[in-house]
């Protein structure tokens, strides 16, 4: 059976797409699935540094598409998980060096071999976006609780629907619970009501994200991280497991259970 092809997109830049791809991919690989991450942000490659794989790059996605190498040659294996790999974006090429047709072909050939193909989409709604979504059957739209990010997310959801991407769900990143409590940030429910797309999960604003990016080690490797727990919950739901949404921010009981079971 063919694997799932999932594009992580947002419209607005800097909202957490690359962070999401790295953490969902790592979690699914830890669950023993075969996972390939595809960086389609041509010209602004980043997934490699977030994954800590920047010094192993030889070939990139454009080389694969232009037939300069086989796709296996461009796949960089993760340092910890042998069933996780990444195809980097080209750094010195243009977004229109590849076409939607070519992306579709690449995605379906990857989906034949992997359980999960996770695509990191560039910001914007131009050719790079169109390429990134061309071969995807599922889209995860990332937004932060801010007006400009939400507006861009709404636009992107419209474009995804027009492109007949069947499954669309929402990820809210960088939620600041204290600000929501004070009434100075839109709540999860406010955002869901505005965008009317099912919610996959909520990631808190967290310094841990910055630290893990600095180190090039995805957050989900750290069992004690709260933001990491949010990504693990999302990966589980993506995988069809019925983990309740509020289980991500574990209270005392959740922590006890973890101590017992882990």
């Amino acid at each position: 059976m063919a694997g799932k092809t999932i594009v992580v997109t947002s419209g607005k830049g800097g909202v957490g797409k690359t962070t999401t791809v790295a953490n969902l991919g790592t979690t699914l690989a830890k669950k023993k699935y075969n996972v390939v991450l595809l960086d389609t942000d041509i010209g602004l490659r980043n997934l490699d540094v977030v994954m800590g794989l920047e010094n192993r790059i030889v070939y990139n996605i454009v080389d694969v598409i232009e037939g300069k190498c086989r796709k296996e040659q461009a796949m960089i294996r993760d340092r910890k998980l042998s069933n996780l790999c990444m195809i980097p974006a080209a750094q010195t090429r243009e977004k229109n060096s590849i076409t939607e047709e070519q992306m579709k072909e690449l995605c379906s050939s990857l989906a034949a071999e992997f359980d999960y193909v996770i695509i990191d989409c560039p910001a914007g709604i131009e050719q790079g976006f169109k390429n990134a979504i061309a071969g995807a059957d599922t889209a995860l739209v990332v937004t932060t609780p801010e007006v400009s990010a939400i507006r861009d997310a709404d636009r992107v959801i419209g474009l995804l629907e027009a492109a007949l991407v069947r499954q669309i769900s929402l990820i809210i990143n960088r939620l600041n619970a204290k600000m929501v409590k004070k009434g100075d940030m839109m709540s999860t429910n406010d955002i869901i009501a505005l965008l009317s797309v099912p919610l996959l999960g909520v990631v808190p604003e967290s310094e841990e994200v910055v630290v893990s990016t600095n180190r090039g080690v995805p957050l989900v490797h750290d069992r004690s991280s709260k933001a990491g727990a949010a990504f693990r919950g999302m990966a589980a739901r993506l995988n069809g497991e019925s983990i309740p949404l509020d289980g991500d921010s574990r209270g005392f009981f959740g922590r006890m259970k973890r101590l017992i079971w882990d």
Binding site: R151, G158, M186
Partner: peptide
Amino acid sequence: GASGQVARKRMQFVLMHDR
């Protein structure tokens, strides 16, 4: 009042327009 509610109301209007 709370800026979260201000943002929510503004977004309701903006998104309706955009759509």
